[in-house]
């Protein structure tokens, strides 16, 4: 059961894939704007507009797809490793719904019209609030308390979001909220990248620090503790890291599902099943997948642009089902 590729080769390959897709993402425009029209603009004396589009529209979009995808992949791998459950995903602690709720409240109250950046800021505030709540709970209770609290927080956030939809002043405002919830990185600005980027990097650093403990945890909590793993510290790292990077990502991109669930599954055999090695691999895999999805969204345009979260769920769910069927003997053992 040795992995087919040596770990450094796998990482280099995935990094090259991410780089390549980022390049494609910078080059390919929406089908309706003329997929490759930028080239002809550059060679026909309109390079100012072309460069502005590259710098101000495609660069933030590409950067966010990469950052958010990597966060989802890494957090998914960390959570599955920590909970020792292949069904865990970054939504499990209710961080994503809390971030969504913050953003929805910004939309609902109209604050986002006065100040566009209020939307991601309130999303981040929602995620951090949820993380603090979980942290408070985790100090007393165990893992089960944390997951159950996550379910409760998710349900509460979903309920309040439904309430906002229910009470929204007109159908247009409701539609705006719903579209936002579907998840997208279209037309974000560099402001979004600068706002979410540092938090996302911080979240990665925190998650990365948990890596080795996750390996030890595959022997069970008692054995891990006897090996010198500080379980409480590990729990804090995983919860805080996930909340910060996924929360910040959700705040700028909306709800994007299935990346955090599917990517770790895909890559686990390739890293020899070690949770610590899976972190980086899954981050790169998540980045590549979301970049690819965002490119696909542009090429598949027939009418309004598909929302990224819709596409990942649409492709991710059947794929996940197939994965479960194929691997069911493995999962049961």
């Amino acid at each position: 059961m040795k992995p087919l590729l040596p770990y450094p080769v796998l990482i280099a390959g995935l990094a090259a894939l991410v780089g390549g897709l980022a390049f494609v993402s910078m080059v390919v425009g929406p089908a309706t704007a003329g997929t490759f029209e930028l080239f002809s603009m550059m060679t026909h004396g309109e390079s100012d507009t072309a460069w502005m589009i590259m710098r101000e529209v495609r660069l933030p979009r590409t950067a966010l797809a990469m950052l958010v995808g990597m966060s989802l992949g890494m957090a998914g791998a960390a959570l599955q490793g920590f909970l020792r459950n292949p069904l865990a995903d970054p939504g499990v602690f209710g961080v994503s719904p809390a971030a969504s709720l913050g953003a929805v409240l910004a939309l609902y109250t109209g604050v986002s019209v006065q100040m566009p950046l209020a939307l991601p800021l309130m999303g981040i505030a929602g995620a951090l609030l949820c993380a603090l709540l979980l942290h408070g709970l985790a100090r007393r209770g165990g893992m089960l308390t944390l997951v159950l609290a996550g379910v409760a927080v998710s349900s509460l956030c979903a309920a309040v979001m439904s309430l906002a939809l229910n009470l929204s002043p007109n159908p247009y405002a409701a539609a705006e909220i719903m579209f936002w919830l579907m998840g997208s990185v279209t037309d974000r600005s560099m402001d979004h990248v600068l706002l979410a980027g540092p938090l996302i990097l911080l979240g990665w650093a925190i998650l990365g620090a948990s890596g080795r403990s996750l390996d030890a945890l595959s022997l069970g909590e008692e054995a891990a503790a006897s090996l010198g793993v500080d379980l409480r510290r590990t729990r804090t790292l995983v919860v805080a890291g996930t909340a910060i990077c996924v929360g910040a990502g959700t705040a700028v991109a909306g709800g994007i599902g299935f990346i955090g669930l599917v990517v770790p599954h895909l890559l686990r055999p390739l890293v020899g099943h070690a949770p610590s090695r899976l972190l980086l691999a899954s981050a790169l895999g998540g980045g590549a997948l979301l970049l690819a999805a965002d490119i696909l969204v542009r090429l598949l345009m027939f009418g309004p642009e598909l929302k990224l979260g819709v596409l990942t769920a649409l492709v991710g769910a059947p794929f996940f089902l197939w994965l479960i069927f194929r691997a069911r003997t493995e999962l049961e053992s």
Binding site: M1, K2, D215, A216, L219, G220, A223, L227, V229, A274
Partner: peptide, 21 residues
């Protein structure tokens, strides 16, 4: 510990190496 369950399909060598943690 009494618990003999090992999560994930980690190869035996990696498991033994965890003793060096």
């Amino acid at each position: 510990p009494q618990e003999r369950r090992v999560e994930w399909r980690l190869p035996a060598y990696d498991i033994v190496m965890l003793g060096r943690y």
